[in-house]
């Protein structure tokens, strides 16, 4: 089972590049701000659909945003 810290992501960095708030991103992928917050904090691993939506918003490949932690 995936534990909470098996995956890291660069959402925060990508958001900063695009000058977006958590709420902006949340609105664009139709989830709550809590969800984005939890993903950034590494507390929640998003579904594939949500991950793909986030990658599309930033216009980069999925693996540029989401990577497995070393050791998996």
């Amino acid at each position: 089972m995936l534990s909470d810290s098996d995956m890291r992501n660069t959402i925060k960095v990508e958001r900063a590049k695009k000058d977006m708030t958590q709420q902006d991103l949340a609105d664009q992928v139709s989830v709550s701000r809590q969800t984005i917050n939890s993903i950034e904090a590494g507390k929640y691993v998003p579904s594939t659909v949500l991950a793909l939506k986030i990658a599309r918003i930033f216009g980069v490949g999925l693996e540029e945003i989401f990577q497995l932690e070393e050791g998996d």
């Binding site: 139709s30 989830v31 709550s32 809590q34 969800t35 939890s38 993903i39 929640y44 998003p46 579904s47 949500l50």
Partner: peptide, 9 residues
């Protein structure tokens, strides 16, 4: 109000 996949988890 905003029921999404994280809330469902």
């Amino acid at each position: 109000k905003e029921e999404d996949e994280y809330i469902q988890k």
